[in-house]
Design a protein around this nucleic acid. Structure first.
Lengths: 185, 185, 185, 185
DNA sequence: AATGAATGAGCGTTCATTCAT
DNA sequence: GATGAATGAACGCTCATTCAT
């Protein structure tokens, strides 16, 4: 963490710690220490810890979404892309040792009145939902009830993530994928 | 919190705070203050904050499971009981203003090396899964693939809880219920 | 620690802990836990932690002195007995891994106003000094300056103990013995 | 304690308290209160209480050694310097009302696993021993057995300190000085 | 003679944030 | 744009002691 500029170093360090150690478990001191930055320099760039969290979530949203799109880019149709999404979950979650979703994880134990963070989480999930919805809407077969199906698939994705995190196992992802296939006939 | 004995008061107070404010957000000081107990009295009954969490989770498991069984007790068969489970989620989560699952919530931002808590969480989820599995196994129709279906339903339940918590809305529960019905034909 | 009566169990346990772990490092809770006794039972027998310390020191004085006398009992004269005293130090301190003198150790980091403990320590040292003094006074050769020589030997004994504790080695005891021999011609 | 900067104030205050009240008897709260410093300011400068102790001992070593050298600087030879050392003990210990040696005092009742402190103590004593050794080695008369004599004198110094602390009297120092003279002929 | 329950005060340490330069 | 110094509040936990039974 030495080549990048200060702000960037803070974001990268904090992001990694927030995700892997948890938001509450990550203190300001650890961030600045690992980033090799003075505390005041940090507060020059960010008003508060919450502010860093916002940037963390924004970047995570972009990166995660791009990775997903990339992962399913070679699939031909909506059904294949959605099936691929579960494969994506599996690859990702195994790699991070089932650390789960950074967005889910951050809302569950949050100091009161940090609405901006929860807003960011909702935004991320809504974008994902919209993507699925549009995917289905483009297929004649699902056009009539794309929204309904998207909601159901969304529940399966979220359930797969949190349950695999609890169980430290891929079976919930596999089960979710199978359920998704049934739902889409 | 005055009539009960000290230990009971601590458990009740802590349980409420752990669930509604979050485990990390709830300090020992808040617990003893609200319980009207001296700090040392608390440590006479519990070796650590983690120990209180264990009791909290054990009790929550019992209470939650009993409530579920009670809620679906008048349903005649497995399908009806499972459908009823989603209705139970809805009633419960609306009442707690979509605070989500105490077990899910506690694992996502936990100080390191608190395996006893994660064990307790897994125990709770495994019990629920077992219940669904047995329910289906008793029905001739699902006997052959009860385990597979139970896994899928479990994902739907978990997804419904976390997503309704994020969205502060019942739609994920409704979607999950509909998906469950499709899966069970 | 089960066969003895309560009071005895407390004394034995506390004595061992006070000596090997240190007086301040030994909490009441550890004593009662290891002794297998209720806290109130302990306070039935002893008004305070200081009171246990007094008994500990009294017993230690008796035991230690008896061991010394026993160790040098077969020596024929004052000089031999005094030389034997240094051998006794060596045997004892090696056995306790150079934990030093329980009396020296307890005075150096004591809560204020615990005069009864320091009195006990002085008593112990005065008894030892008196023994050396009398030993020498009985010998015609040293009769005239027994007190002076006793004081010097006493300093050597104390120095041997504390320095071997610091160095975790027997050399200070050996040096003290040699110095003692020189002093006694 | 107002003119100096924060770190210095902490060290000075802590040093005084550690020496005169004892290491265990001196809490962090007392240090910051007397130094007029916020608790967090203290932890900005020192990682732990143990760290303050290290600095305390390092400084004490330097000051104490310099005082000794200064005190005997006008003595012409080794014998005179060593005799002067006992006079130094007497002056010093009377002034501090026989509070004894800060290094001896801190090791006797130490929380477990604070090796850095005991290392510091041994360092101090080894330096003193080396000084005596070298002093004697320079004199033709003692050259052959400087090490042996130094060890014996060291025991006398340590014994003089601890025994005068117990007895609250100068007699052990005087006895030690006399014994030292005998040893050096 | 013995106990379980309860206590106030204090422990050493870390929190996220602000200040003057 | 960046820093070192400082802060009040809170953290989880342990201390020796006292109470009612």
């Amino acid at each position: 963490m030495q080549k990048l500029n200060v702000k960037e170093r803070i974001i990268e360090t904090a992001s990694h710690l927030f995700y892997f150690d948890g938001y509450n478990q990550t203190g300001i001191n650890k961030i600045i220490e690992e980033a090799g930055v003075a505390k005041s320099s940090m507060y020059q760039h960010f008003r508060s810890k919450e502010d860093i969290a916002i940037v963390y979530l924004q970047r995570r949203h972009t990166a995660w979404s791009n990775n997903l799109l990339e992962f399913v880019s070679n699939k031909k149709n909506a059904v294949a892309k959605i099936a691929g999404s579960f494969d994506y979950l599996q690859e990702w979650l195994k790699e991070v040792e089932f650390r789960g979703c950074g967005f889910q994880n951050i809302i569950t134990d949050l100091p009161k009145g940090q609405e901006r963070i929860t807003d960011q989480v909702r935004l991320h999930k809504n974008e994902l939902l919209k993507w699925i919805d549009q995917l289905l809407a483009e297929e004649p077969k699902y056009k009539g009830n794309a929204k309904e199906l998207a909601n159901e698939l969304m529940v399966l994705l979220e359930g797969a993530i949190i349950l695999s995190q609890i169980q430290k196992d891929t079976w919930p992802i596999k089960a979710a994928k199978k359920a998704a296939e049934k739902i889409l006939e």
